[in-house]
Amino acid sequence: QEPLTASMVAAALPHEQKQMIGERLYPLVYEIHSQLANKITGMLLEIDSSELLLMLESPESLHAKVEEALAVLQAHQA
């Protein structure tokens, strides 16, 4: 699978951008938290596309955001 570039994403419509990013993001989120991957990916897709692209290339920031989303999710459910 070729990497998703900023220009590829910029050429797409806003809702297509999120879809493209989501397809790349989901497998990465699934590796971190398989049970909540669908929900967490949906939450992360609310973030700016430019920031999401950086997260796709940075496992550390992706991890941090997944943890953040999990905390929000748990607080919401409590």
């Binding site: 989901y26 669908n38 949906g42 897709l45 609310e46 919401h76």
Partner: peptide, 22 residues
């Protein structure tokens, strides 16, 4: 009430509906 609109889940291969309300 003032319920938080929760981002919908993302499922691979399924169009994500998250931005429809923005």
């Amino acid at each position: 009430g003032s319920s938080i609109s929760w981002p919908p889940e993302f499922h691979p291969g399924v169009p994500w509906k998250g931005l429809q309300n923005i």
